[in-house]
Design a binder for these strands. Structure first.
Length: 546
RNA sequence: GCGCCCGUAGCUCAGGUGGAUAGAGCAGCAGCCUUCUAAGCUGUUGGUCGGAGGUUCGAAUCCUCCCGGGCGCACCA
């Protein structure tokens, strides 16, 4: 809405003429409609530097303020010194033109132009099926990436595969044991190995494909083959899940590539050249305490092997070399202890403090039939992501993962996600979209064919209609704020609010056959568009009928 | 013991980076269908924002301490 920028500029100008130091003018939309359409706390923030009471500053600001005709209907000073603006009706309705002209692009901005951001998420070990926690990370990472795209950043979605560590070794030995069991031999799953039934099935598949002689291979050869087969198989399963869940990655990066391309050695050399490493007790240490970590960290153990940290540093160094200005990682809460050392390592390499950002996502608990569904990766009993989205549908699962802050502990209520009533927020929002679509279906018109041109939008004067106009006008700023904070849940909250007003409006007023039909069709088309944009931004469908 | 996150209505959670009388959904209570989807709408009950200090014109929001919950504190990954 351009009116906001005009007001902002006028306020800045007035402040300057009062001799105030330059500062950002904050505009907000008051919660209470009695406080106008736009408000600013400028007088309160300037009071101190001008050495005057906030209300006195407000009065001088208003007296000095120069606004073009026809923009604002009323300016008031209220409370401790807020300046409230009531916009002219024509200004409110102008948002409809913006929405319909921009269409699918309404809400997009370009604050991030010129910035390349890497968003890494899920990055599950290739050792088993994705579980519900990965689902939360997938939904969140994908939505964060979309938010950044909507604000003009160039984004790459990336999945990191730990295919070189001890976990895949355990996978290989577990699978080998299952192969032995499948041909009737005694074999134990190794300590800390993978107990899940999926490896029993995979063992049978392997024997069918390779023949029973596969089980007679020498152990080391068998384990080696099992490693490749296991990783390949689990990666394929995970990709299938993610694809069905609506998540697509631009890049899959393997840990083994770090070794192949000598990136580990280069990273070590870099860190050493910057004077950030030292040897002690036969190990090589990184001086992370110089950058805010609690203690220094080992990079190369005294037995000559590397810790997990070093390949991770090398990986993130590689992201920097690829030209990203920011690297955002979505990590499970069980990794939050790594944030400080990784951030320190990035600074040790000389990167800006804001290059690396870890977004921590808390674990998910699943509730069904009023009881918590327990899961444990160790025993192989767990709720897989696939089970979940097959039961609730992808839209509901994604929405539920996104409707809470990532750092809040979250209980996924399966029964609620499946319910097709107003209690279920995703249904509620989609229903609002379907209802708007229904109007056009009955009218026999395409929503996209609706234009505000020549329509008397002044007919939209009911409280629900004015509330909808303001809500629609908020969307671009909301997206920008959600992107800056990396908080997709702001979008779901907004959608529920918009849907609620839309339902109330729909219920209270008819569109077709009324004198206000033309104007209300424009409003319905715009509401439908913004609901769809918000849902699509989160990777959720916007059905025309339910 | 140390670090990070969290604590807001009976329940699940918002609270837009310090603003106006703390909000929504669910649950509860009372109502609403000759209509473009009642798969919905309207009204209403409900609060010491975990506690105590502090910062300032102003604090759920910032700082300190305490209480309670989760997670993490390896030459594991």
């Amino acid at each position: 809405m351009k009116a906001l920028e005009v007001i902002r500029a006028a306020l800045a100008d007035a402040a300057a003429r009062l001799g105030a130091p330059a500062c950002a003018v904050e505009l907000e939309r008051p919660r209470d409609p009695a406080h106008g359409d736009v408000a600013t706390n400028l007088a309160l923030t300037l009071a101190k530097s001008l050495k005057q009471k906030p209300r006195a500053v407000a009065e001088r600001l208003v007296a000095t303020l120069q606004l073009p005709q026809g923009l604002v209907r009323k300016v008031e000073i209220a409370g401790p010194g807020f300046i409230n603006f009531v916009l002219a009706e024509a200004q409110l309705a102008s948002v409809l033109e913006s929405v319909l002209a921009a269409g699918d692009g309404y809400g997009k901005g370009d604050r991030g132009r010129g910035t390349r951001v890497n968003v890494e998420f899920v990055s599950a070990n290739p050792t088993g099926p994705l579980h519900v926690g990965h689902g939360r990370g997938a939904a969140l990472g994908d939505a964060i990436a979309s938010l950044l795209e909507w604000t003009g950043h160039a984004v790459e979605r990336e999945f990191y595969v730990n295919d070189a560590g001890v976990q895949v070794d355990k996978l290989a030995r577990s699978l080998w044991a299952r192969v032995q069991q499948a041909v009737g031999r005694r074999a134990d799953i190794p300590e800390g190995g993978y107990q899940g039934d999926y490896l029993v099935e995979l063992a049978h598949t392997v024997l069918e494909r390779e023949g029973r002689r596969f089980a007679d291979l020498a152990e080391e050869e068998g384990v080696r083959r099992c490693r490749a087969i296991g990783v390949e198989s689990q990666r394929r399963e995970q990709d299938e899940d993610l694809r069905e869940f609506g998540v697509r990655f631009d890049v899959t990066f393997s840990e083994s590539q770090l070794y192949r391309d000598m990136l580990i050695e280069q990273t070590l050399a870099d860190l050493a050249a910057r004077g950030c490493t030292y040897e002690q007790d036969g190990a090589l240490w990184l001086r992370t305490t110089a950058f805010g970590d609690d203690k220094d960290r080992v990079l190369r153990k005294s037995d000559g092997t590397f810790t997990y940290l070093l390949p991770d540093i090398a990986y993130h160094r590689h992201k920097h070399e690829r030209g990203f200005t920011r690297a955002i990682d979505v990590w499970g809460a069980d990794h939050h202890g790594y944030v400080a050392r990784m951030r320190a390592a990035m600074q040790a390499l000389g990167y800006p403090a804001d290059f690396f950002h870890a977004e921590i996502v808390q674990l998910v608990r699943v509730m069904r039939g009023g009881e918590e569904v327990r899961f444990s990766k160790r025993t192989g009993e767990f709720v897989t992501l696939r089970d979940l989205y097959q039961e609730t549908g992808v839209d509901a699962a994604r929405y539920f993962f996104l409707m809470r802050r990532g750092d809040s502990q979250f209980v996924f209520d399966v029964d609620l996600a499946k319910s097709q009533t107003e209690e279920n927020p995703v249904f509620y929002v989609q229903m609002a979209h379907a209802r708007m679509s229904g109007i056009f279906r009955v009218a026999g018109r395409e929503p996209s064919a609706v234009s505000p041109e020549g329509v008397d939008l002044g007919a939209l004067d009911q409280p629900e209609e004015l509330a909808l106009l303001k809500e629609l006008a908020d969307f671009p700023d909301l997206v920008a704020g959600a992107a800056a904070a990396l908080e997709p849940h702001r979008i779901t909250g907004y959608l529920e609010n918009l849907a609620r007003i839309a339902h109330a409006w729909y219920h209270k007023f008819r569109v077709l056959g009324e004198p206000e039909e033309a104007a209300r069709l424009v409003l319905a088309a715009a509401v439908r568009q913004v609901l769809a944009n918000g849902l699509h931004l989160l990777g959720i469908g916007a059905p025309d009928r339910m």
